[in-house]
Design a protein around this nucleic acid. Sequence first.
DNA 1: ACCATGATGTGATAAATATCACATGATTTA
DNA 2: TAAATCATGTGATATTTATCACATCATGGT
Lengths: 214, 214
Amino acid sequence: MLSGRTLSAYFMPQYFYICGMYQPILDHIAGYVSLSPQEQELCCSLFTQRKFKKYQFLLQEGNICQYDYFVITGCLRQYEVNDDGREYVVQFAFENWWIADWQSMLHNKPSIFNIDALESSEVLMIEKNDLDRLFREIPAMDTYFRKMMTSAFLSLQRRLLFQQKTAEERYADFFNTYGHFEQRISQQHIASYLGITRETLSRIKSQHVRQLKP
Amino acid sequence: MLSGRTLSAYFMPQYFYICGMYQPILDHIAGYVSLSPQEQELCCSLFTQRKFKKYQFLLQEGNICQYDYFVITGCLRQYEVNDDGREYVVQFAFENWWIADWQSMLHNKPSIFNIDALESSEVLMIEKNDLDRLFREIPAMDTYFRKMMTSAFLSLQRRLLFQQKTAEERYADFFNTYGHFEQRISQQHIASYLGITRETLSRIKSQHVRQLKP
DNA sequence: ACCATGATGTGATAAATATCACATGATTTA
DNA sequence: TAAATCATGTGATATTTATCACATCATGGT
């Protein structure tokens, strides 16, 4: 193992990873744990960057989810299509959010979800094997993902609680989670996240406007 | 650090931890990661065992959740009481399940949940500080909890999807999660887990019976 | 064993939301 | 720029589930 940052940078060209495209994810990780330059290097080297056009699929129902995605720019959505053809959005992912079907990835089973881009998006993606390698070689990544998973768990729990409330309260809750992103998502997608029809959402919104006008 | 199991057992009385009460949790951990005897020792030493009588609270709304609980025997339930006084069960916990309000524990905020015993129960409990110590001193515990959290996340995700379906479908799903535990939970608690009233659950069940009779 | 209390069953009615149908408005594309 | 396509608004009605009211059944405590 090389010890100094400067020395290794000289001998190891992959140190160039620590720049540009990879900065957002390093920053995000740094918010939870600290990685040595060597660890940052290894980490970045295992990610691939890729662009997706609007409406392009990152994962389609029936396929096995191969990657965990980290959004650099743009907006993704993970959703299920039920037997009647109705869509239910499980999660939106904006800048600095992770998205994947863990059920599928973990157990190598066909996914029941679709993941697609609502805007043209840039992502960093890491294969399951490489993620496992990260966990093996960098203990701090275990910690990082433990914390990520905990916070993902807590958002889901919060959402489950709100799912018990009326459509109007759920709409209000949407702002707490996705707040200023609202402009970037169409109403039908918001409705499909809230678990109501677009008609009901439309009516809720018009009632709100009426309440504001005295 | 002492190297051999027998030698340490001789000199370190706390090796007695590895027996009886602590076996279930060591077995559970061993299902995910492997700990050295010394690590098992440290781990057990940080847990307290305690019994709770039926209907006794482990956590009450407004208090800060201090412990993560691991159920040895019995059955616990975590639930929210909404503004109308209606209860919503977030999770049941039977043998070998973890339960806690992570939101409260992580951020040291008053809990919105109650946790109580539906049967008289024996649990192992660990304080937040001690859990943090485990993470610091035993890297494998980071891995273990990452995996626990991932599976907790996936159950919640599954539940969120089912919450979109009809009451009848949700009732069917209940069996997939809590299957043979059904006999141990009263209908009103099942209803409160499904997010429906006990009347609706009663009607669903009687319709099922009617369908079976030709 | 009896009584009190809690759990469950069932009818009548109310409330929330979905469905269907169609109008209007906005955006993309040829 | 016109046409086509997609997104949103709104009315009438249907469906699901909640609410309230009360009956019946089960169970634990004295």
